[in-house]
């Protein structure tokens, strides 16, 4: 299926957020996630289903004012 990851279309086979993150190479990164604009805590990623066309945001720490 195709999902929008940080604004770019990506191909993913996995069905849960936890496994999609692993598939996309985020396994070792400190990131926070939001699916279709809603925050998904790390503890809920295993149970969060990802579907065709979903918008996924994967954010990491950055400099800020």
């Amino acid at each position: 299926m195709r999902i929008l990851v940080n604004g770019a279309w990506r191909e993913a086979a996995a069905m849960t957020l936890a496994s999609v993150l692993e598939e996309l190479g985020y396994a070792d990164s400190i990131v926070a996630t939001a699916l279709n604009g809603e925050f998904v805590p790390a503890s809920a990623r295993g149970g969060a289903r990802v579907s065709e066309g979903d918008r996924l945001e994967v954010l990491a720490p950055m400099q800020g004012g």
Binding site: N6, S29, V31, V58, L59, Q63, G65
Partner: peptide, 8 residues
């Protein structure tokens, strides 16, 4: 600090 999109 802030958050931004991180590519894998």
């Amino acid at each position: 600090v802030s958050l931004r999109r991180e590519s894998s």
